[in-house]
Design a protein around this nucleic acid. Structure first.
Lengths: 236, 236
DNA sequence: ACATCGTAGATTGTCGACATTCTACGGCGG
DNA sequence: CCGCCGTAGAATGTCGACAATCTACGATGT
């Protein structure tokens, strides 16, 4: 039999805690400046502090929380001045990945990507932002998996939260970026899929770069709009 | 008084363990494939498993060890195919940092950099490779500190081990890269320092990029030489 | 009023023990 | 001889307790 089941990793508490905390930060339930008290989190989840500690340490590595010895951890925001660089690094990681994915991807995996896109489309229709981001993550994560780079993939995973915090807010918010995202969430992925189907590495890289840098610009435009609004409000 | 003491962070066991383990990997005392048994490490260090666990988790985030739930952790090597991308990301991080450092660096901080270079020079003379790398790390870390980017600095720190593993081996080994490193370790940093003195951001970025990409090429050349040697040996 | 010091409460750091899971090995049946 | 199963040992996962450290607040003295 050529069919293979995907490896299902053993789940441990730490991973569940990590997923819950990360989601809370991404969706804005935990805001920058909020403190994360290990004992409270553990008590609320009905577990001991050990897995909570490990999850918080990983969030620190991902840049989502700040941590000082003996002083605990607080949720971090992403400074405007670093967004540009972060998205450029992201684009570089995705470019390398998709070039290699072009050489290796199977037809079945292409169908998997198409399925993620369909799911994303339905989620956009339903206004289920959480599901939109889940589908987007699955789409790009599949590309990383197909590419098969160990370390680049790890770095990609590691900066994923950082990349999504701001875009999540922009998508969910009422600003000008909201309509843009609703309109282009799916369509901006189509050229990527098409290039993969054609196994055209150059086109695929261009499609990915355009996609990512476009998101970056949208977020920074949202910033500028918000800043202008601030100034305007302050001037009144 | 305008003088300020640098903040001295509270030291906790985890950080010492992390430093020891990381150094052991970088210097080759722990080789790719070696297993890291928490209980053994803890016993040898005379402490409990808790701080060891946290240190190992961080090494996993840094890409130096692989970790699977319930199966423990093993030391990882850096695949040749990923070196190019890793150094390119590194160059991007350092470029952004030095541009900002150019705007912010004080004369005292420039002297601090010069001091690190002197130390590096003496270490090269003495053949103390460990000290060379310590000075190099201090030099670049100072630039990151001066630049003041929170997240980019964290990412820089996080990939530091990955970047140094291979160059450490090449420097310490007997290959052609050894002589190159002895000759250029200090001199390749001089243009960076000069550009900072002149507050010339463009020149500084170019100097940094050249420096990093040069190291990348040397390491990959060492690879090719080693691979050719392998083939030659196999053909005999 | 002001700065310093000391203490009590809160929070994180570390520890040792136990639970859960993996791995290797040997018995058992075919 | 070969494959399957169960078990024993080893390693990691989680827990609860205690130690070390920080923070806020009030006493003390000037």
């Amino acid at each position: 039999m050529s069919f293979q089941f995907p490896a299902v990793p053993a789940r441990v508490l730490r991973q569940d805690v990590l997923a819950v905390l990360r989601k809370a930060i991404l969706e804005g339930d935990l805001k920058p400046g909020d403190r994360l008290l290990e004992a409270d989190v553990a008590a609320q989840m009905g577990i001991s502090r050990a897995p909570v500690r490990e999850a918080v340490r990983q969030l620190e590595q991902e840049g989502l929380v700040d941590f000082q010895p003996h002083r605990g951890s607080t949720v971090l925001g992403v400074p405007n001045e670093e967004i540009d660089a972060i998205y450029e690094l992201r684009a570089e990681l995705e470019s390398r990945a998709i070039r290699r994915a072009c050489e290796r991807i199977t037809d079945e995996q292409i169908e998997e990507l198409a399925e993620h896109l369909h799911r994303m489309g339905r989620a956009v229709e339903a206004g289920d932002y959480s599901a939109v981001f889940e589908a987007d993550h699955a789409f790009h994560a599949t590309i990383q998996r197909v590419a098969g780079y160990r370390l680049l993939r790890r770095m990609w995973e590691s900066m994923d939260g950082l990349v999504r915090v701001r875009s999540y807010q922009a998508f969910e918010g009422e600003g000008p970026a909201n309509k843009y995202f609703r309109r282009t969430a799916v369509s901006s992925h189509v050229p990527i899929l098409a290039a993969l189907r054609a196994r055209d590495a150059d086109a695929a890289e261009k499609a990915v770069r355009d996609h990512i840098l476009e998101v970056s610009e949208r977020i920074q435009a949202e910033d500028s709009a918000a800043a202008a609004h601030e100034v305007h409000a302050a001037a009144r």
